[in-house]
């Protein structure tokens, strides 16, 4: 750190920090505190009565099979989004890594979905998979499958996973490609001279060296699937059919804004905060150290 060279002014830094700190306090820390406080209260929807109930909201939540279902849905959803987005991105990055002609064009054509909003991605795929007029169900009929994500839970999940993973491929691709290009060429050349096939070189040299990147991306993708896919669900399945795609964030919104169950919504917020904190700690503790070699 710059321990020797600093400006002496004692007041100025507070002014410089003020805008950031005020916004942080008013719109981040205060509401988070409120969520924590409300999670210990039972309040009717109009705020006429409130009662301090300790952990009752949490106890109730953990006894609610719907909550566990939502938890299960979220973990399943996140795992599938991460695996799909990372798998496709890794494959494409492995292909693009050694390409000389047209590398720039390929890259441009692969990174633009990053700019598409999750909700927009969802609407695009919702049309593609539309059971009555969508092109994909139309093709599926030729092999005898009648697609209907309005009633079939697995199919609804497939659509939201594909829509969420689709726009995330770009991000993963950029990182995998950067990771691969950072691997010293001499390593690959040495293996080639020793007679390792391109396939073997990928699995035994490139892939292990990419594992820090992959771990970092795993955390990022899980965070994305957990917290940034509200729009995907809200624009398409609305958590259905039969709550099969109701993720935790969607449930907080539904219970808080639609159901007006303030205590339960606050308790769910607190649990989500603990999850984010855990994920952030993982990201900073384990990822940062391992990425550098």
């Amino acid at each position: 750190m710059h321990d020797t060279v600093v400006f002496k002014n004692k007041i100025l830094p507070y002014f410089l920090l003020a805008p950031q700190l005020i916004i942080t306090l008013v719109f981040f820390i205060w509401p988070a505190g409120q969520a924590l406080y409300q999670s210990f209260l039972i309040e009717d929807a109009f705020g006429f009565s409130r009662e301090f109930v300790w952990f009752e909201n949490f106890v109730y939540l953990f006894q609610d099979p719907e909550y566990w279902n939502s938890m299960k849905v979220t973990f399943l959803f996140s795992a599938m989004v991460a695996v799909t987005a990372m798998g496709v991105a890794l494959l494409l990055a492995a292909m693009a890594d050694r390409v000389l002609k047209g590398a720039g064009t390929y890259k441009t054509l692969l990174i633009w979905p990053y700019a598409v909003a999750p909700v927009v991605a969802a609407v695009l795929w919702w049309l593609m998979f539309n059971p009555s007029i969508g092109i994909l169900p139309y093709w599926m009929k030729f092999v005898g499958h009648y697609w209907n994500h309005y009633v079939n839970a697995g199919e609804a999940m497939t659509v939201v996973v594909i829509a969420s993973a689709w726009k995330q491929i770009s991000y993963n691709f950029i990182f995998f490609l950067a990771g691969m290009q950072a691997i010293p060429k001499s390593l690959i050349e040495a293996a080639a001279i020793d007679g390792a096939s391109p396939f073997k070189r990928f699995w035994q040299i490139v892939f292990p060296l990419l594992s820090p990147t992959a771990f970092f991306l795993l955390v990022v993708n899980v965070v994305y699937a957990f917290f940034e896919t509200f729009g995907v669900i809200h624009a398409t399945t609305l958590g259905g059919p039969d709550n099969a795609t109701r993720t935790l964030v969607y449930k907080v919104y539904e219970d808080g804004f639609v159901g007006l169950d303030l205590g339960s919504s606050a308790a769910q917020s607190v649990i989500l905060m603990i999850l984010v904190i855990a994920l952030t700690v993982i990201q900073f503790r384990y990822v940062e150290r391992k990425v550098q070699y």
Binding site: L21, F28, W30, A32, Q38, F227, F257, L272
Partner: peptide, 21 residues
Amino acid sequence: MIFLTLMLPVEVRILPTYEVV
């Protein structure tokens, strides 16, 4: 304090943030 904002995305504190606003 600034670091903390990283751990509090709007999605996890929907209702109280709405109330503040």
